[in-house]
Nucleic acid binder design. Structure first.
Length: 782
DNA sequence: GAACTTGCTGAATTG
DNA sequence: CAGCAAGTTC
């Protein structure tokens, strides 16, 4: 088979440049996966590289699996002795550590357990409690994320503590939790997700032996989604490429959306400096989307300053206009989306649609609307299979089967199903474990022998539990994984308790457990890994792994959608404070990341792209007014079609921007001209548009290169609407959040007149818009 | 010890 | 509004 015939020129160079460092800047939809898979196949088939010398690293299992399958397909007529290793960063680390962790000399053994985030939070919580800190003031979740952040930036507990200012009480507390947390993990022979990378890097640094071995083994390394790598992952790559520099990284700086998780965009921006003699290849032809969709994406992302800059182009037709919809509230938005999906499926039963949202909590309304419309959907994220309580319980039993000293697992299931071991007994176990300085498991063994101050009932209950686990441990020594899973479900009483409940919910849980058994059976058949690997896979499985490519309708966050494509895409909740998220508003870098996120969302679409927003939305159970996202304003309005009922932000923004430079700059396209509106009938929309116009001036427009233009724009706006924006430094300019003695929090929409006699139009959630004279209103900044 | 009630606090994105 | 911890009752 000719591996190069169906590639374009750039792709071909990317595939055949096999020696030396290579940076492939691959725009969205430019055939990135195809290049990687062809490259692997090419190395094997044309350059006679033994597959075992190739390592390809991805971020998700799903991507890894897809890559494996595609390579296999390309090489279907080549006989292979081995397969290239296609793996996620985390499973690569597990693989190394399962073999060599003892070389670290930190007391860890090869049978270490992996703590996922939920486990980590549990440990953190226990640490906070045991150190006597107030759990309400020091939320375990927050502390855990601080610890994780520290670990990812190369700080251990000691370094972190040393960095904490003495007066910063909270951080000092976190530092103490951090230290205890690390101790607990170590004494449980457990590693959290961050440790997997940290320990691997440390091991490769420490042991020349191990480092050499893997340098010799992996002579050709590929890294996908390189823009998402963090400093530890970079260090890992560095260590693996000491002997050779056949390192090929593929990424797109415009799609870097994991900065909050420690991803370091400079890894890709500075790759050429880190690896001298790097060849750079740009893949800029997009095969996925229509021209209009690409225009929208480009028009948004070009507002970012921190980027390498590239322009996607396509030979695809311009396609349909983007479809815009302004909903009264979030419920209406969901109903609109469901109705449109129904329509698309009616016209094209085989099409696939995706609903993309910023936060998982938005999914519920769409689930309800789709269910009501009788449309089947698939949802990614939220509670994934391995995160369900019953699955986690059984997995905990399995962990105990391999290592009964795993206290986290033990405490999780010691009384589920209920077997008469209550809080009193648990506290007693905790106390004694600490006193004797032995594991909970050993403590239970001692207590099960009976003794002073223990009720006979308690002793019997503990004995029972001890026996159950002992049996599981024995079973794990001789039975295949699936049999141990069955035992963990049946012999622990778990299944019986669920059956006895006799409810629909219990029924569903039983089905999930059946599913777990099925997974284990598959595992027994396919790989000879055994229970250990089965549990590792469960721990490392991720949300995006649940994505089913053949589903007609998929609900997922924008983050989870990265790397996927759909003929029909809905980007919903395009509102200020939601997308971009409020937590990013203050920070320029964070806002740029949000913008890249918008870019990712837009470029998922092949043919039809919908953008929607709601005027009102429930937050914390309270209904709040919301403004359209600034990213909507950054799209070319003339390639949007307005599907809103009645007046909308778009209809007004379009009318009001007619005279302004943005229109002139985009005069190329004649679309939208037929939809001229005077704006006079659109009271609320008018104020929203006003708000935008004002804000774009405050922010200084989209590019730094046009100060002169910004001034004329400002002057014109001022004369047109009789405003004097930002002339009174002390006053409340539109966009400011204010507090009113009677109406509470509100948003300034408009300001008329100057100095302190200015008239303000302020929108108060729940009270509507009020016109107020600034000097009498008693407003304060909120 | 278990099941139920109340009252509080807090959700951004994920391997 | 929801999920969780502490408090209450059987």
């Amino acid at each position: 088979m000719d591996l190069l015939s169906d590639l374009n020129e750039q792709q071909r160079i990317a595939v055949t440049t096999t020696e030396g460092p290579l940076l492939i800047l691959a725009g969205a939809g430019s055939g990135k996966t195809r290049v990687i898979t062809h490259r692997i196949a090419y190395l094997i088939a044309e350059r006679d590289v033994p597959p075992s010398n190739i390592l390809a690293v991805t971020f998700t299992n799903k991507a890894a699996q897809e890559m494996r399958e595609r390579v296999e397909k390309l090489l279907s007529d080549v006989r292979l002795q081995s397969a290239p290793l296609v793996s996620t960063f985390h499973s690569l680390c597990v693989r190394l550590l399962r073999r060599d962790i003892a070389g670290l000399e930190e007391g860890y053994t090869r049978s270490f357990t992996i703590y996922d985030q939920d486990d980590s939070v549990r440990v953190t919580k226990a640490c906070v409690k045991d150190l006597g800190f107030d759990e309400a003031r020091l939320s375990a979740r927050q502390v855990q994320s601080q610890i994780s952040h520290a670990k990812n930036s190369g700080l251990d507990a000691e370094l972190y503590a040393a960095r904490v200012e003495s007066h910063d009480e909270k951080r000092a507390a976190i530092a103490r939790v951090f230290r205890l947390y690390e101790e607990r993990l170590r004494s449980n022979n457990a590693l959290d997700f961050d440790d997997l990378l940290i320990k691997t890097v440390r091991l490769l640094r420490k042991s020349d032996d191990v480092r050499e071995r893997y340098n010799d083994r992996f002579r050709f390394i590929l890294v996908d989604e390189y823009q998402d790598t963090n400093s530890l992952q970079f260090a890992l790559i560095r260590l693996l490429t000491q002997k050779q520099q056949n390192i090929c990284v593929v990424g797109d700086d415009d799609q870097s959306v994991y900065g909050w998780r420690g991803a370091d965009i400079t890894n890709i921006l500075n790759f050429e400096e880190q690896y001298p003699n790097t060849q750079v290849i740009r893949l800029e032809q997009n095969y996925r989307s229509t021209q209009n969709i690409l225009d929208a994406a480009g028009s948004v992302v070009k507002n970012n300053t921190e980027r390498k800059g590239k322009t996607l182009w396509t030979s695809n037709p311009s396609g349909d206009l983007l479809r815009y919809y302004q909903a009264l509230n979030a419920e209406v938005e969901a109903r609109f989306v469901a109705a449109r999906i129904e329509e698309h499926l009616r016209l094209e039963p085989k099409t696939r649609a995706a609903v993309l949202y910023r936060t998982n909590s938005q999914s519920r309304l769409f689930e309800e609307a789709l269910r009501r419309a009788g449309i089947a959907y698939n949802i990614v994220g939220g509670f994934s299979f391995y995160e369900r309580a019953e699955v986690r319980d059984i997995v905990s039993y399995l962990k105990l089967a391999l290592n009964p000293h795993d206290s986290i697992a033990l405490m999780r299931v010691i009384n589920s199903p209920p077997r008469g071991i209550g809080k009193q007994t648990l506290d007693e176990i905790e106390r004694r474990a600490k006193d004797y300085a032995v594991s909970h498991w050993e403590t239970i063994a001692i207590m099960a022998e009976g003794g002073e101050r223990l009720a006979a009932r308690t002793v019997a209950a503990l004995k029972n539990f001890h026996q159950i686990i002992t049996k599981l441990v024995e079973a794990s020594g001789r039975e295949p994984a699936s049999e141990v899973v069955k035992a963990a479900i049946l012999d622990t009483g778990y299944a019986n308790t669920l059956k006895a409940e006799n409810s629909d919910e219990a029924e569903a849980r039983l089905e999930n457990l059946q599913e777990l058994v099925n997974a284990a059976v598959d595992y027994d058949n396919e790989e000879a890994g055994g229970l250990r690997e089965f549990i590792d896979a469960a721990a490392l499985s991720s949300d995006t792994d649940q994505y089913k490519g053949d589903a007609h309708v998929t609900l997922l966050t924008v983050h989870s959608a990265k790397g996927l494509e759909f003929p029909v895409v809905f980007i919903v909740g395009m509102e200020d404070g939601l997308f971009p998220h409020a937590r990013s508003a203050s920070d320029k870098a964070a806002l740029e990341e949000e913008r890249r996120l918008a870019y990712v969302a837009i470029t998922r679409a092949e043919k039809y792209l919908y953008v929607t927003h709601a005027m009102k939305r429930r937050v914390y159970g309270e209904e709040l007014a919301s403004e359209p996202s600034q990213f909507l304003n950054e799209m070319p309005l003339e390639i949007m079609e307005d599907l809103s009922r009645g007046a909308s932000w778009l209809s007004f923004a379009r009318g009001s921007s007619r005279l302004e430079s943005r229109q002139a700059a985009r005069a190329l396209s004649g679309a939208g001209d037929s939809k001229r509106h005077t704006g006079k009938t659109y009271d609320s929309a008018e104020s929203i548009a006003e708000f935008f116009r004002q804000r774009s001036q405050q922010v200084g427009g989209s590019s730094a290169s046009a100060p002169a233009k910004a001034t004329t724009q400002k002057a014109r706006a001022a004369s047109a609407s009789n405003n004097s924006p930002s002339s009174s430094a002390s006053g409340f300019v539109p966009g400011t959040h204010v507090r009113h003695p009677k109406y509470g929090r509100g948003l300034v929409l408009r300001r008329e007149g100057s100095d302190d006699s200015a008239k303000l139009t302020v929108s108060f959630p729940g009270f509507g818009q009020k016109k107020l004279i600034e000097k009498y209103a008693g407003l304060e900044k909120a």
